[in-house]
Nucleic acid binder design. Structure first.
Lengths: 343, 343
DNA sequence: TTTTTTTGTGCAATCGTTTGAACATGTCAA
DNA sequence: TTGACATGTTCAAACGATTGCACAAAAAAA
């Protein structure tokens, strides 16, 4: 008994048949006698034979592995997406290789290389904050390599993208604030180069316009890093003096909103009485903070599921790049909690 | 130009040399003329040659891939661990294959099979809540297959485990509550079959004993699912009548603690005036809820890093199972916030 | 000039599996 | 007795790369 796994060769040798016979017997090919099939299967069972997926990969040029490239695992949103990806992949016999870029372009590039080297069958991408040039992805697309972008989508032709309706989500959120009587609404926005940021800002602006409110350019403040600390600094600066103070905040995501809330509390401003707050993404904690944070829920799990289903269809040629509408847009849902409701 | 990748054969054919020569030229083997080397490298560059990792895997029986088996990606703790794993793996040229079990034993077993089929070089495991029988892991261990357990560790001989000092963390937390003047301390505990749960409970009990407080068996309540809802139910039940009401809660982790806090607020009990609360794990939201939650921080990222480093050492035979102390125990840190500090 | 040494390449096997084609062997009909 | 056919099995090449060994040609030593 050799160390490690039994192979088809071991079975063949022990039964004095050829490896071809073993291979066919195991897969119930016609033209193998029942007796042989039985013997082979029994021995395979006994030796705990398990096909070598690597050899199969090589032979079939198919690895049953998909790659996922994301900025950071620890973002609640991304981890829910991964969860959805993993579910669908697992159900279809696919493995998931994970690369996080930590928002670095270099890591993203080298992740793409690694994945291609590993002969993955397809890849799901949400690119880094630093990525403005998409050559490394364009290369894959040109090859016809199955690739689906989600959440953060590139400005490229002929790509398949799965996103949520960031525009509508933002629009709804701001409209809701206006409906509650807030008029001086600040937007703490995301990194300029991401489509999601642009869409959310556009939703914000359009909601203001449709409500007959003039947007104040000074009240659109970029929080590119999206950290709590950054948000606290910016919010404190903005609210510390009382003259023409804004009365509501629409934040690019919940961490930023939570940071803002902490800053407001420190300034002794009441939420939502003095300032209404709405976030984005419905992070796990959002319902647990005080007051519970109104937010725009993105169906992360569903994004993962959808993107993966499409990717698997692409891989299995059930469809090709053209047969899909380029953008799958999932609906967001505005969750109204106390942080934005005037009593 | 064939679809997909250029291979060594393509280079060989184009230059009228053998594949062996190409292979050696690319790796700067001695005994290849500089002229040939140059030609080969230039063409490789031009064709964007990228070695086929699958073929390499097969040839070398080494895939430069490690597997990670965890209950759920969306747990903040696990996502930080993954992040640490990914960092170290990436830095050493290893890929990470991810399987989440969703706390299901069946999925865990089939994940193990998949990973073995895929010839991964080693695996990091935190097993499911359902796992009480470790046969599927024992098999790997018997083979001498590199495996490192983290956080949730099995009751097996000769395993390498990376954990935090759950006992000490719990002890410190409860001692802190006592020091603050709390005396009637409830423990919302985790699933009975997990070592971490046992350790935390033991820390709780010992801290009480060392403080001269008799433990009340009715005040150790299992929250096996660790969800907010479960915790709300249990806490409400426990605190709803005023007779001999507990005055503090030590929860198995922060979600449970947060649920308890919501229940307490609903009952109009003040935190920390009426009831002190300490959680475990330092989830991302813990500092943002109101009042900020005292908690025992586990170095998730560091666990991931440490476990991966050890695993890579095992894989590269820099060390073997025996050369490590069986348990690497990392220190926790008690983060004292408002939820447990009497004013 | 012959022998030895050095230098540069190629051959072929190998990793584990699949698969088209060829090959025995047996059965049956003419 | 011969040919036609079915049945069960094996051969060998292929996937892409590595590597011990053999071998040819050129250079150096005798």
């Amino acid at each position: 008994m050799k160390p490690g796994q039994a192979t088809i060769k071991d079975i063949a040798k022990e039964l004095n048949v050829s490896t071809s016979t073993v291979s066919r017997a195991l897969k119930d090919y016609p033209g193998i006698s029942d007796k042989t099939k039985r013997k082979v299967k029994e021995l395979a069972e006994k030796l705990k034979y398990r096909p070598n997926a690597v050899a199969l990969s090589l032979r079939k040029s198919k690895s049953y592995t998909i790659g996922v490239i994301i900025p950071e695992v620890v973002h609640f949103f991304f981890s829910t997406v991964i969860s959805g990806v993993e579910e669908v992949a697992f159900a279809n016999g696919y493995n998931v290789i994970l690369c996080q870029t930590n928002e670095k372009l270099n890591r993203e590039k080298s992740s793409v290389e690694t994945m291609l080297s590993n002969q993955i069958d397809g890849v799901l991408v949400s690119f880094s904050r630093e990525t403005t040039n998409f050559e490394h992805f364009q290369k894959m697309i040109d090859y016809g390599f199955p690739i689906v972008f989600f959440d953060r989508i590139p400005d490229l032709e002929n790509t398949i993208n799965v996103t949520v309706n960031d525009y509508q989500g933002a629009y709804d959120a701001v409209k809701h604030l206006v409906d509650q009587g807030f008029k001086k609404i600040v937007h703490l926005s995301g990194p300029e180069n991401l489509t999601i940021s642009k869409q959310r800002k556009k939703g914000y602006l359009d909601a203001l316009r449709d409500s007959g409110i003039d947007a104040n350019p000074d009240w659109i403040l970029e929080c590119p890093y999206g950290t709590e600390k950054e948000s606290i600094l910016i919010t404190t600066e903005l609210f510390k003096n009382n003259e023409n103070r804004p009365d509501a905040i629409f934040a690019h995501h919940d961490i930023v909103a939570a940071g803002a809330m902490m800053a407001l509390k420190a300034l002794d401003l009441k939420i939502p009485e003095d300032v209404g707050v709405v976030g984005f993404s419905n992070w796990q904690f959002s319902s647990m903070i005080d007051p519970p944070l109104s937010t725009v829920a993105q169906p992360g799990f569903q994004i993962g599921e959808t993107a993966t289903k499409i990717l698997l269809d692409l891989i299995n040629k059930k469809s090709n790049m053209e047969s899909f509408s380029q953008n799958i847009v999932l609906d967001t849902e505005l969750l109204i909690r106390k942080s934005s409701v005037k009593v």
